[in-house]
Amino acid sequence: MNLNDPPPAIRVADLAKEVKSGETPLVILDAVSFSVAPGEAIAIVGASGSGKTTLLGLLAGLDRPSRGEVWLHGEALGALDEDARAALRGRLLGFVFQSFQLLPALTALENVMLPLELAGRPDAETAARDWLERVGLGARLGHTPKQLSGGEQQRVALARAFAGDPAMLFADEPTGNLDGATGAEVAELMFRLNRERGTTLVLVTHDLSLAARCQRRLRLAGGRLVADEPVASGS
């Protein structure tokens, strides 16, 4: 790697996570190392319990590793306290979850506004409206999550994730709760926005067709990285 090159969007070195389960420590993740270039789209795949979600949590600084280190845009997460990691998340990351994680008391518009408001952005409402238009929900701003379908909820979540203009999007099974056709639509929207914004995408999924749309596929098994391979059909 040339010193003048920009740092990788994500660099992971010898990452491990163990939790105490009774007497013996339970190894969830062990010796995982990889890098992701800016703008690259990677899929983390594996069976249930393989450590995918744990890895995503560590990458996002939502949890601390037992060993190893994660660098986001060259900044080591291990050196940061929780609040500094939160600030980093606010600056760099957007999230999409399997269960959407919209706040039920808030309307679609308010859900999208929330991260912008937390960041103190004065244009929160305009930006949020704008993003909801882009995901095709311009007519449903005042609806609460309960009044929206699953696909619509996930589109609100996408608008929320992209509204903060993040450098990276972390998506955890974004289509897991959706039926095939709706899932495909949401995936299409996500990849399109990702392309348009040049966002680095980290996608956790066990849906191979979704993984196939990424450039690279990391396969986890039993907490270890067993394969790091380019996807032939990746665009």
Binding site: A60, L62, E82, D83, A86, A87, L88, R89, G90, R91, L93, F95, Q101, L103, A105, L114, P115, L118, A119, G164
Partner: peptide, 16 residues
Amino acid sequence: LDASAMMRCMGAPQRQ
């Protein structure tokens, strides 16, 4: 609980 976790996830420090 979810709202709080979500806000932290979105980058709000605990203090905030």
